[in-house]
Simulated scan of single mutants.
Amino acid sequence: MCSANQFSEELAVFYEATHDYGDIGDESFYLDAATDADEPVLEAACGTGRLYLELLRRGVDADGFDVSPAMLDILREKADDEGLTPTVWEADLRSFDADREYALALVPYNSFCNLRGVDDQLAALDALHEVLKPGGRLLFDVYVPRYDVIAEAFGEWQDVREVEYGGTTLRGRSRATIEDQVAQTYRTEQELLNTDGEVVARDEFVLSHLPAQQVELLARHSRFEGWSVSGGFDGEHLEDGDGVQVWELVK
């Protein structure tokens, strides 16, 4: 995760339990791109290491950062269990820096949507541009806003699943509500409840809807020299009905 969403320790554990490797569908796309780069790779918003640890397993020279120390703690624990040596640090997507340049930067799983204002979005693109070598690439994905889903699901609590934490079974649930219709942002609430129905952990954060036209405008106003977008992780042209936008920006 990135920028404004830091997650409590309990919610970080819940996130890890509900985001298994292979569940999202972006793994092959990002891992193949990183392997093909054959040079240093940076994963922004690396979270608990769903992709980042697989990069290390494949021998990719990869660094990563995330704004949530609780998420990074889980990543480091998992890496230690496997004998891996991660190079990760706590930082904000809008204002991070790095000690070296990268051939490829990744911002997977809608993490760019955590940036709610144009200034924040451009600041992130500027920071990512800064750490890429000439000719370096930035890859990121954002969902396609689906208003039929929004109309059906917003405002209703959705049960997710149960997770064990501290010897106790906790049930997770989430709810999305409109935050600002003009700004096209929405608020996501996540709660963990014990067996008595009491809330024991709670986080909330605001995300942006980012239609393709807005992302293209951001790319045009960034320092990147070129950009392209696909409708999914298979490289096909973005068209109506696609659920995800995959962007490539080139320095």
Rank of each mutant, 00 (worst) to 15 (best):
residue 2 C to P: 07
residue 9 E to F: 11
residue 12 A to H: 01
residue 16 E to H: 13
residue 20 D to V: 13
residue 23 D to N: 09
residue 25 G to P: 04
residue 26 D to G: 09
residue 31 L to F: 04
residue 34 A to P: 02
residue 37 A to Q: 12
residue 37 A to W: 00
residue 39 E to W: 00
residue 40 P to Y: 01
residue 44 A to L: 15
residue 46 C to T: 12
residue 50 R to F: 05
residue 56 L to H: 01
residue 60 V to R: 06
residue 63 D to R: 04
residue 63 D to Y: 02
residue 65 F to M: 01
residue 70 A to T: 07
residue 71 M to V: 02
residue 72 L to I: 07
residue 76 R to W: 06
residue 76 R to V: 06
residue 76 R to M: 13
residue 79 A to C: 02
residue 83 G to K: 01
residue 83 G to A: 02
residue 87 T to M: 09
residue 90 E to S: 07
residue 93 L to C: 08
residue 98 A to C: 12
residue 109 Y to A: 09
residue 110 N to F: 10
residue 116 R to H: 10
residue 117 G to H: 08
residue 117 G to I: 12
residue 120 D to E: 14
residue 120 D to H: 09
residue 126 D to I: 10
residue 127 A to R: 15
residue 133 K to T: 08
residue 133 K to I: 04
residue 133 K to S: 05
residue 135 G to I: 01
residue 139 L to R: 01
residue 141 D to K: 05
residue 142 V to C: 13
residue 143 Y to E: 11
residue 151 A to T: 13
residue 155 G to I: 00
residue 157 W to H: 02
residue 168 T to Y: 11
residue 170 L to C: 02
residue 172 G to S: 00
residue 172 G to N: 00
residue 173 R to E: 11
residue 173 R to P: 03
residue 176 A to D: 14
residue 180 D to P: 09
residue 182 V to P: 05
residue 187 R to A: 08
residue 187 R to M: 13
residue 193 L to V: 14
residue 195 T to K: 14
residue 198 E to W: 03
residue 207 L to Q: 14
residue 208 S to K: 06
residue 208 S to E: 04
residue 209 H to K: 06
residue 213 Q to Y: 09
residue 217 L to F: 11
residue 217 L to R: 14
residue 223 R to A: 15
residue 224 F to M: 13
residue 228 S to P: 04
residue 230 S to W: 09
residue 231 G to D: 00
residue 231 G to K: 00
residue 233 F to N: 11
residue 235 G to N: 03
residue 237 H to V: 14
residue 238 L to D: 10
residue 239 E to K: 14
residue 243 G to L: 08
residue 244 V to M: 15
residue 245 Q to N: 13
residue 251 K to E: 10
